[in-house]
Nucleic acid binder design. Structure first.
Lengths: 194, 194
DNA sequence: AAATTAATTCGATGAATATCTAATTAATTT
DNA sequence: AAATTAATTAGATATTCATCGAATTAATTT
C-alpha cells in the first residue's frame, strides 16, 4: 500500500523519461492500448530506431515493458507504475529528501571563507542577518557547553575573532546562542551545533 | 477540488523543469524553507547566474515564486503546485489525452502507401493481421452501407483491388466487416469507419 | 533456401540546454 | 558619495540527447 520513497536516481530517471514530447505521446498511446514499435513509429512519424530508443528510456524508468509476439515487439504500460510515482510525489517526505545529498553546511563554510582571515580573525562583522548568524555559529564553537564564563574570560575568547567584543557579546545574546546572568555567560543547551 | 486537465505544453514544461538533478535539489531545499539565490548557489556549489536560470525555469513551470526582500530575492515553493500536478497525473483522463494530437489514421495510411499501386490495385494481400485489417478497412469503403450485393457485384468491386476475390471475400467476413446470407453480401452497421 | 520484415544497435549529426564569465542593474552599507 | 553586495542578463562553451541512416539480428513468408 505504501510506496517506498524513490531514490534520487529513480526520481530523476522518471522525470527525464517524461520530459520529451514524443515520449509523452507514446505514453498517451500506450495507455489506450499496447502497440508494436512499427505502429508507434507510423503514428508518430518517426523512424523505428528512434522509437526503439524512446521505449528503452521509458522501460528503464519502469514505465513500459515489451514482450516479443511473433517477430513484433509489443509494448504496454507497466500497470501501476505511473500511479505509484504520482502517489510518491504526493507523499510529504519524498521531496525534502531529495536535498539529502546536499551539504547543508556549504553556505556557512562559504561565509566563513569570505569573512575569516587566515589567522582566524574576522575581516569585518557581516552586516547581513544570515551571514552574521553563520559567523556567530562559528564563534560559538569556542565556548564549551556547560561552562560558565566571566565577562573577562568571554572577552578573551571573542578577541581572537574581532576587537569589538561588546558587539559580539550582544549579538550572541540576541541570536540566543549565549545566555547571561549576574555577569556570567554560558552556552545555551538547545543549539543544534557541535 | 478537481484540477483541470493540463495542456500538453504544461505537462511537458512541468516534466522538463523537474528533469534536472540540480533543479530537483532546489525543489528539495525549497520544500524545507524559502531561500535566496545566493544561499542556493552556495549549497549547490553553482554560480548565482546558473541558479537564477534554474529558478526561472521552475517559476515558468509555476512551481516556485520569488519575492524581493531588501536586495535579496527569496524564492519559495508555490504552495499546492506540485500536489496539483501529481493529482492530475493520477487522473485517468490526463494521459490518454496526451495522444490527442496524434493522427490515429497515420498507421493505416502508411500501410496503404506500402501496399497500393498507383492504380489502386494491391501489390499483395498483406500476410500480417494489422496490415491486412488496414487494407480490408480501406476496401470496405467501396461498399455502400445498407446496400445488398450479389456475389457477382461484390466480385466486381473486389477485382479493382486484387484478382483473388475469394480470399478478399472470406477475409472481409472473417474480420466481421461484411455479413453474408443466401448469396448476398452487405456491410455491417457496427463499423466505425466512414 | 531465399526474400521479406521488425527490431535493435551503432555512429554520426544537429539541436537543446546547463554552466560559466563578464557586464549591468539595483539596493545597502560605510 | 563611494564602495559593496545580490541578482539578473547576455554571450560563449560544452555537454546532453533526439533523431536519422546503415548494419545486424532474428523471425516469417514465399
Amino acid at each position: 500500500m505504501n510506496d517506498p520513497i524513490p531514490s534520487d536516481e529513480q526520481l530523476l530517471g522518471f522525470f527525464k523519461a517524461m520530459a520529451d514530447a514524443n515520449r509523452l505521446k507514446i505514453i498517451g498511446l500506450l495507455t489506450q492500448s499496447p502497440r508494436s514499435v512499427e505502429e508507434l513509429a507510423a503514428l508518430l512519424d518517426l523512424r523505428p530506431s528512434t522509437v526503439s530508443h524512446h521505449l528503452m528510456v521509458l522501460s528503464e524508468a519502469g514505465l513500459v515493458n515489451g514482450r516479443a509476439q511473433s517477430y513484433y515487439n509489443v509494448y504496454q504500460m507497466t500497470s501501476g507504475a505511473l500511479e505509484s510515482m504520482a502517489r510518491r510525489l504526493l507523499a510529504q517526505e519524498t521531496l525534502p529528501q531529495v536535498a539529502g545529498s546536499v551539504d547543508l553546511n556549504a553556505y556557512d563554510r562559504k561565509v566563513l571563507a569570505d569573512f575569516l582571515l587566515p589567522d582566524g580573525h574576522l575581516k569585518t562583522i557581516p552586516a547581513q542577518h544570515k551571514k552574521r548568524e553563520a559567523i556567530l555559529r562559528h564563534i560559538l564553537k569556542s565556548f564549551e557547553p556547560g561552562v560558565r564564563y566571566s565577562e573577562k574570560q568571554a572577552n578573551e575568547i571573542l578577541e581572537r575573532f574581532h576587537e569589538d567584543t561588546a558587539t559580539l557579546r550582544r549579538e550572541l545574546i540576541a541570536y540566543k546562542m549565549l545566555d547571561r546572568a549576574s555577569g556570567e555567560y554560558w552556552r545555551k543547551t538547545d543549539t543544534t551545533e557541535n
